[in-house]
Write a protein that binds this DNA or RNA. Structure first.
Lengths: 371, 371
DNA sequence: CTGTTAGCGCTTTCAT
DNA sequence: ATGAAAGCGCTAACAG
C-alpha cells in the first residue's frame, strides 16, 4: 500500500452491497422515529423510553437481525473502532504471541485490528508511513511493531504533523513517550546471573543486526552488566535466521582459535573462547546449535546456551535448550491499552513490561569446562 | 468479539477526531464545487475538466495533504475495501506464510486486511460466526482460514442467509464452491513415492486430529495411495504440538512392540514397525524426533522421516529433515483473488493450488533397514 | 418521553 | 465543463 498523496484512481467497486436491516427499517416497523430506535439500541442513559416501546424495538431489532452500520456510525462519531497493527511478518513465533495478546485485548476493548505488513526498507519512521491510515479514517491509531531503530532526528521535521495516535511496540520510536517495550536488560541479566553463578567468566551474545532496537538494548545491557561483574563479553551480530546463527558461531569459534577478532567492550582478548552464550532468537539458535555440533563442541559441555526466545520446541531438541521466557502476550495487551489511552487523548507515559519473565531451565547450561 | 444480535452499548468514544483536509476544503481553496474536485481526484473518465482547474485541484490537494475519508467514501459506495481474515493463531509458521501471501495480494488489489483470531470452539461454521463483519460493513468479505471441519449439514438452515462473500482457506467449508485449498493428496503422494522407491513397505502418518480438514484429506489420500501400492499404513492422530508428536510416536512404537494396536486401513497387522513416517506439522516433528531419540531409534537408519511442513530450521536439526514444501503464499494470494471475485459478484469455482510443491531433500530419509 | 433537524464527508445522477 | 441536489445510515443536540 503506497502512500501517494491523494488517492490514486481506486479499482472501482462492482456490485452494490446487500441490504441489511437499517435503523429506519426497524423504526418504521415499530412506528417510531429512527432517533428513538438509536437511543434505545445504544442504551442511551440520558433518556428513558416507554417500556412497551423499548421492548418492541429490541424485539424487532433482534428479529430483523439488525446490525448497526459501522461505517455510518464511525463517520458520525468520528471514531472507527479499528487499530492498525504494523508487523514484520517473520517466521519467528514471538510475533504470533505478541499478536495474540494484542488481538485479544483489542477485542475486549471493542476494537478491531487491521494488520499491515511492514514495508521493506522504510526510510521514514513507520509512524509517518502509516499515518495515512488514520488520516483516511481507516483506523483510530497505529500499533507499530516494526523492529528497526531509526535515527531520532528523522522524525524531527514531521513531528508536529505526527499528532496521530501511535505506539511503538517492542521497540522505541524516534520520539520518546510512545513506546511499549519489554525489559530486555532484565532478560540479559537473567542469563548473565545464571551462568556467572555457575562460574562462567567469558560469555557471548549472538543476536540480530544492531539496527534492531531490541538487539541494541540487549547489547547495551550486556555490556554494562558484564563490566560490572568483570565478565568478558563477545557480541556477534548476524541476520535473524538459522544461517545468521550459524555464521555468528563460526566467527566466534574462528576468533577463539586465535584469529583474534575484536572482543566487544574493549576487554582484553585473553582467555580463549566464551563458555556461555545467549542467542537472541529461536531461528538463530538452530544455526548456532548446528554449527557447534558440526565442529564437535558439546552443549553444555563445551558451551552453555540460552535462548532469549522461549518456544516449546526447545524442550524437544537433541539438547533441550534453556531459555528466557518473555512476557509477549502482556506486551501486546499493554500496547493496545497504551494506544487506546492515546486515542482517548489521555496523557500516558512510556511503558516497560517486566512481568512475567523467567528462566526456563532445561539442559543446555552447565558449569564451564575445567581448562 | 461476541456476536450479540444488535450492538451492546459500545464503550463510547472520547475525543473528536483531528481534522484532515476535506473535499470541500480544497474545493473552496480552488473556487469550484466539491463534485468537481471529486471527479478530478478520482480520475472520472466520463467528464473532462479545464486543464487549469484540473491542475490547480491536484496541486492544492497535494499541498493540503488531502486524503479521502475512507468511511464516507465506503458509506456512499457501499464497499469498504477491507477483507476480514479469520485465522487460528498457532505457533506453526505455516500461518505466517499464508498470511503474508494474503496480505501482499490484498494490498496489491487495493484491499486492507483485518485480522480476527479464530474463536475457541465454535459450534457454528465460521461463515455464520463472522458474517456480522460484513453485515456491519466492516469488511466486504471473509477469508476463513480456520482449520476444523464442520459437518456439512450444520450450515444447511442458514445457507440462504449466507450470501456473504466468503472463502474457506486451506480447508473445505460446509458448502462446496467457496474453498481454496492446496493439493494435500499430492503432498502425501510425494512422500509415498519417495519412500516406496527406496523400498519401504510399511509407512506411517502422524498428524493432527481428524477434525482438522487438511488432516482428514491427507489421511484419505494416504489410505488410497497405500492401498494402490500395497503399502501398509498406520495413521496416528494427536494434537498439533510437540507433545502430540511425542505421544503419537510412543503409541507407534508400543504398537510395533507387539501390543497390536489397530492398523489403519484394515491391513493385516503383520511385519512390525513402519520404517518411514510423514509428520503433518513442524511442531509435531520436534516431538517425533525426540521420542525416537529417547528410545535410541536412529533417523534415518531405523526410521525415515518427512515433514509435511517446510521450514528453514529443519535443515539445521541434528538430523536435517526432508520435507514437502507447500505453496503457502500462493494459497494466501489465491484466496484473496477468489474472495474478491465473489465480492464482485463473479461466479467462481473452488480452487486447488498445486504449484509450486516440492520435496526438499535432506538427510532424514534412507532405504529401510534390512531386517 | 419522543420527534425534528442537521449533518459526518463523499459520490453521483441530473441539470445547466 | 461544472454546479445543484440528494442521499449512504447513523447520531446528537434541541425542541416540544
Amino acid at each position: 500500500m503506497t502512500v501517494e498523496p491523494p488517492s490514486p484512481p481506486v479499482p472501482a467497486p462492482r456490485k452494490a452491497g446487500r441490504r441489511t436491516a437499517r435503523l429506519v427499517d426497524i423504526a418504521e416497523a415499530v412506528g417510531v422515529h429512527t432517533s428513538t430506535v438509536s437511543r434505545v439500541l445504544n442504551g442511551d442513559p440520558a433518556q428513558s423510553v416507554r417500556p412497551e416501546i423499548y421492548e418492541k424495538i429490541w424485539r424487532t431489532a433482534r428479529q430483523q437481525g439488525y446490525r448497526p452500520n459501522a461505517l455510518a456510525r464511525a463517520l458520525k462519531r468520528r471514531h472507527t473502532g479499528a487499530l492498525a497493527f504494523v508487523i514484520p511478518l517473520l517466521r519467528n513465533p514471538i510475533w504470533v504471541r505478541l499478536q495474540r495478546g494484542a488481538l485479544q485485548r483489542a477485542s475486549e476493548r471493542g476494537y478491531a485490528v487491521m494488520i499491515m505488513e511492514e514495508e521493506e526498507m522504510a526510510a521514514a519512521p513507520p509512524a509517518s508511513s502509516y499515518r495515512y491510515l488514520v488520516d483516511e479514517s481507516r483506523a483510530d491509531g497505529l500499533l507499530l511493531a516494526t523492529s528497526l531503530r531509526i535515527p531520532s532526528h528523522a522524525e524531527g521535521g514531521t513531528s508536529g504533523l505526527l499528532a496521530v495516535p501511535h505506539v511503538y511496540v517492542n521497540r522505541r520510536g524516534p520520539e520518546r513517550g510512545n513506546d511499549v517495550v519489554m525489559d530486555e536488560p532484565g532478560a540479559v541479566r537473567l542469563f548473565l546471573e545464571h551462568v556467572a553463578a555457575l562460574g562462567h567468566q567469558r560469555v557471548a551474545l549472538i543476536d540480530g543486526p544492531v539496527e534492531v532496537d531490541t538487539v541494541h538494548r540487549r547489547e547495551l545491557a550486556a555490556r554494562r552488566a558484564c563490566a560490572a561483574r568483570g565478565l568478558q563479553l563477545t557480541v556477534l551480530h548476524e541476520d535473524v535466521t538459522e544461517e545468521g546463527g550459524w555464521a555468528a558461531t563460526q566467527r566466534l569459534l574462528r576468533r577463539g582459535a586465535g584469529a583474534g577478532g575484536t572482543v566487544a567492550g574493549g576487554a582484553p582478548a585473553g582467555g580463549g573462547l566464551p563458555t556461555a552464550c545467549a542467542v537472541g532468537s529461536l531461528n538463530q539458535m538452530f544455526g548456532v546449535m548446528a554449527a557447534l555440533r558440526a565442529v564437535g563442541r558439546s552443549v553444555p559441555g563445551d558451551m552453555s546456551l540460552v535462548s532469549l526466545d522461549e518456544d516449546e520446541c526447545l524442550a524437544f531438541l537433541d539438547v533441550p535448550v534453556t531459555s528466557v521466557a518473555m512476557p509477549l502476550p502482556e506486551l501486546g495487551s499493554a500496547a493496545v491499552d497504551a494506544l487506546i489511552a492515546r486515542i482517548d487523548g489521555e496523557n500516558a507515559p512510556d511503558v516497560m513490561i517486566r512481568e512475567p519473565m523467567s528462566l526456563v531451565h532445561r539442559d543446555s547450561v552447565a558449569p564451564p569446562p575445567r581448562s
